[in-house]
Design a protein around this nucleic acid. Structure first.
Lengths: 224, 224
DNA sequence: GGCAATATGTTGTAAAAGCAACAAAGGGGG
DNA sequence: CCCCCTTTGTTGCTTTTACAACATATTGCC
């Protein structure tokens, strides 16, 4: 477990916790690691949520299978991030999702009960852990709400305008880069890539925006 | 403030906290109430998030104005629910949304810093408050993720199937009632009401589902 | 009971999306 | 430098949606 201390120190869940405190905290949380091969299930739909996981190495997908047997990727997790936390804190009896290893993967398991229950010593770093957790949950909430805001729009163009406007607002200027390539942006906005490409080029031709790769400039998006 | 004790006791944020502890807790959180008239802003886009609100009476809308000047209702809050919590815990410098009173409204303000910082006495009910908060955030997370799952589908029919399947899964049987009328369901799934109505009737004619008002029965949704 | 308001179902049309298939442009590695 | 692979742009066709307008319940209230 010691090999992953640097990763843990950078991860949001252990933010602002000193390396010296980290070891004690891990003990306090009954943390343990487990390794999975490609394709193996870490959590399976229908079972009870009993822990929060943190990805140490590899990659996992959170997937959902519907009645038609379609598998949909809800989210992918990269090292340092936690997963399953919402379900464990809700004490979900039957998980509606599965978590599978996309490649060889190592996971740190944390006992959610020990996260939210202050230890008797009321240690400062345990308090920090809870603050971190609340921040993570809040942050996810905001990101999810934003995404819903975008994909609730009716047309491809409206979704793009909503997304790009917000990106410009966040950047504080009309030029900005986005963290997606075209396919990823289309997936994020739940639209067709080619239809999106068409709209982007139309908007460029109309003088609304300029772009090159994932760098965008909003010229006059308020124009109809 | 005493008049709202019964409401507070039932609200998720104060769940499992005894009435006798509630008073002390409210002091500990520097809680104070404020009243708003219809149309007044409780929080305004651009300002700093400094507190978490709990609605006592009335109704508020969380709205977003885009570059085009369109106002979109992101969520509505009913008495007992909290709002603005994600932004306050993220210590957001510029709120991307506004919160306005739809009617005459009374709000309880809570200092978010005092929520997440254990008081020196490390009182049990403060620990419960944090657990409640984490549950609320987790629950919202799950609901938002579910919604994204539905509205990410390409067609109206697929969105309906995804939503109804999940509703049946949650109910544990193939007959269930939904908490929406047609227009509300269309708004929730971000689709057109009439197009949705058309699809629902088609699906009924095809023998996939049966429904009457907001009571649905899934006959054979796996069928193509 | 009857009227008004709301909710739901139906239809037609124009506009947009989705999809597939392909072209063009880059990028990285051997 | 060339080839392969990924990314992005483009086009044509079919399906679906959005929208408006209207018809038909259903509900609540006086």
């Amino acid at each position: 477990m010691e090999a992953y201390i640097p990763l843990m120190k950078k991860s949001p869940i252990f933010a602002k916790i000193k390396e010296s405190d980290l070891e004690e905290l891990l003990k306090c949380l009954s943390a343990r690691t487990k390794q999975y091969e490609k394709g193996q299930h870490i959590l399976t739909v229908g079972e009870q949520a009993t822990f929060t996981g943190m990805l140490l190495t590899g990659q996992v997908h959170i997937i959902k299978e519907d009645f038609l047997g379609n598998k949909g990727i809800i989210a992918q997790v990269v090292p340092g991030e936690i997963f399953g936390e919402a379900f464990s804190f809700m004490e979900t009896k039957e998980l509606p999702i599965s978590v599978v290893a996309v490649e060889k993967t190592k996971v740190l398991f944390l006992d959610y009960k020990k996260i939210i229950t202050m230890c008797t010593s009321s240690c400062g770093f345990h308090g920090q852990l809870i603050k971190n957790l609340i921040r993570i949950l809040s942050q996810k909430n905001i990101l999810l709400t934003e995404k819903i805001d975008y994909i609730s729009r009716r047309t491809t163009r409206e979704k793009l305008i909503a997304y790009l406007s917000e990106a410009a607002f966040k950047a504080g200027k009309n030029t900005f880069t986005i963290p997606f390539n075209r396919q990823q942006l289309a997936d994020y906005l739940a639209i067709d890539r080619s239809a999106m490409s068409l709209q982007l080029c139309k908007m460029r031709d109309e003088g609304l925006i300029e772009f090159e790769k994932n760098k965008f400039k909003i010229v006059d998006i308020a124009q109809k």
